[in-house]
Design a protein around this nucleic acid. Structure first.
Lengths: 120, 120
DNA sequence: ACAATATGTCAATAACTGCTCACATATAGG
DNA sequence: CCTATATGTGAGCAGTTATTGACATATTGT
């Protein structure tokens, strides 16, 4: 039970604000920290900065420095640990899972936090 | 950012002990609470009981009462919220994700917490 | 060099989480 | 009925986390 990389990923994803940030960044190719922060009225800029740090340490986002800006982007294949875990637990219903993924991609659903509504 | 069902799932998965419990249950069809607890030397029985409660409230495991026993099993398609989130964020690399899932299933990898090693 | 901009970091605090211990509940067996 | 078994629940404490406000760092423009 060593606090390994997958720990960082799962606990990073545990926070709804961080998931929202991740979704937001995912909607654009890149986004500077300031614009990300601007999307969260109820949150101070420093809080968002902390969240970005956690997402970065978990390997979920990448940071590109450009002058005084820091542009954040979603790391392409970071979900490895998540997928690995899901596959280990849900071996049985794996086909369903895989097809669920493909269905979702085929449907081309509105990208952002559909998560909340779907599982109502 | 309402504390909805996906919140419950993600924060349930955030704890490494709970992921271990989920994996353990996944290895068997069903497992009584006591046997689950027995697998965790470093943890009291009540702690495991609390974890099971959280997993159950998140819809990740199901409970079947049989006499004085409570048998726990992995819920077949609970990963919906997780998949939904991943698909929304990782639209781009979706094919990779889907094939990763299928590869893993095809390989028939050792079920349990492979998570730690894979992303080293 | 100076001021403004973009962003991170640190210390302090409030809220949350996980763990244990003692107790409650329910069922089974004599 | 009474005791043992299987398990959950609640209070309390310790450790962790999220948020903020003040300060630090870096870069750009004048």
């Amino acid at each position: 039970m060593t606090t390994s990389e997958s720990d960082a990923i799962f606990s990073a994803l545990a926070d709804p604000t961080r998931r929202a940030i991740l979704s937001l960044i995912g909607e654009h190719e890149e986004l500077p920290a300031g614009e990300i922060a601007a999307h969260f009225d109820s949150l101070g800029r420093t809080a968002v900065s902390s969240h970005l740090r956690i997402l970065r340490l978990a390997g979920l986002v990448a940071e590109r420095r450009d002058g005084r800006f820091r542009h954040y982007s979603v790391t392409p294949t970071p979900a490895d640990a998540v997928v690995a875990f899901l596959t280990s637990v849900y071996q049985n219903s794996l086909e369903q899972l895989a097809s669920a993924v493909q269905d979702a991609s085929a449907a081309g659903d509105t990208p952002l936090d559909r998560t909340e509504e779907r599982s109502a």
